[in-house]
């Protein structure tokens, strides 16, 4: 996987329904390596020619959108009320810089000074109904020159990869999946297959639904990021999965019971190819598989996920080796699924 592509993808702002910049970036990287079209919702459907024809039609999918916020109104004092786009814990939203709207106006989500809080307030987490963004406007009139309700609000954070391969930044969920698919499209593949870069995963697996309908595949591989809780706050099975232990393949989550044969095949394939493989120790979360596996008459689906800490926060953390394991396993599984 190209670290530069990964970094650039993660730093682009693109929450659900506002994926234009991500889409433009991806198209610029794949257009010389495949045929593609963009469907009415904004999904990229890319047909990649391989060395040979596949027995089965396989679709590989990752989502372009990230969680974020949306401006719901402009208050008299020029601050902006907000709602979450996708699942965001309001506790990770306060006390940090944000970018507002298409032009990325600088703002902050502040919080009343701790000095002025009552003891009860100090112990009470914020809610989206009480927090607001401040772009420095003196009043409503000034703010409305720059911002309208419906504008998106993005966390601003630094993206970094250490020499040791520790990756941190926003939107690793699921720009990592996009980066892996770009890499696959730009490489030589043994068989023809279809790649879908989909919209609106974070608001209910909506882009993948229309993409799967249009592609009508026999099999699907979803490339995702999943919650790793290998932190001091969690022990045993509550850790779910761990950084550095390889690609995560689930047997079941809240959206899908995965194809049993494919689940077993993924483990064998990983072992054959020396790829680190792990599964989750909890039934938790969900991804585009939930929409894809019940598309039309059904699609045999597997999700290959990168373990990621602090998912849906302004700073996720992952291991580059896990991202590479996911890409390798996806490639190996794609080859097998084409001919199953």
């Amino acid at each position: 996987m190209d670290k530069k592509f990964l970094k650039e993808l993660c730093l682009i702002d693109g929450t659900s329904g506002d994926e234009d910049k991500v889409r433009g970036y991806i198209i610029s990287k794949i257009k010389d390596f495949c045929e593609y079209n963009v469907d009415p919702l904004g999904n990229i459907i890319a047909e990649k020619k391989g060395a040979g024809r596949a027995k089965n039609k396989v679709m590989v999918s990752a989502h372009m959108d990230e969680v974020g916020m949306i401006v719901t109104s402009v208050k008299a004092d020029g601050t902006l009320t907000l709602s979450a786009v996708g699942g965001i814990d309001p506790r990770v939203a306060i006390g940090r810089p944000v970018a507002v709207g298409d032009s990325g106006i600088c703002g902050v989500i502040g919080s009343k000074a701790v000095h002025n809080m009552t003891d009860e307030e100090k112990k009470t987490a914020p809610k989206f109904t009480t927090i607001y963004a401040d772009i420095g406007a003196a009043d409503k009139e000034e703010a409305e020159k720059y911002v309208q309700p419906g504008d998106r609000v993005y966390f601003k954070s630094e993206f970094g990869i250490t020499e040791d391969g520790f990756v941190s930044g926003k939107a690793i969920d699921d720009r990592f999946g996009c980066a892996a698919m770009i890499e696959m499209i730009r490489s030589e593949l043994p068989y023809d297959c279809t790649f879908t870069f989909v919209v609106q995963e974070e608001v209910g697996l909506r882009g993948s639904r229309t993409a799967a309908f249009a592609v009508d595949p026999d099999f699907a591989i979803v490339l995702e990021s999943t919650t790793a809780a290998d932190i001091p706050l969690a022990e045993g099975e509550k850790r779910c999965c761990e950084l550095g232990k390889g690609a995560v393949v689930s047997y079941m989550d809240r959206s899908t019971i995965y194809d049993k044969e494919l689940y077993r095949l993924s483990k064998e394939t990983a072992s054959e190819n020396g790829i680190n493989w792990q599964t989750k120790t909890m039934v938790a979360g969900g991804n585009d598989s939930g929409a894809i596996h019940i598309s039309k008459g059904g699609v045999r689906t597997i999700a290959i996920s990168a373990p990621c800490r602090y998912l849906h926060s302004p700073v996720c953390a992952a291991r580059f080796s896990d991202l590479e394991d996911c890409e390798k396993l996806a490639k190996a599984m794609l080859e097998k699924m084409c001919q199953l």
Binding site: T124, T162, T227, L233
Partner: peptide
């Protein structure tokens, strides 16, 4: 570190300083 949603039973809680830790990878 933040508590991932699957472990969090109560989003209105504020962590104690003793429970807070930093991930340097």
């Amino acid at each position: 570190c933040s508590v991932p949603p699957h472990l969090e039973t109560d989003e209105s809680k504020v962590p104690e300083m003793a429970d807070i830790c930093i991930d340097v990878g």
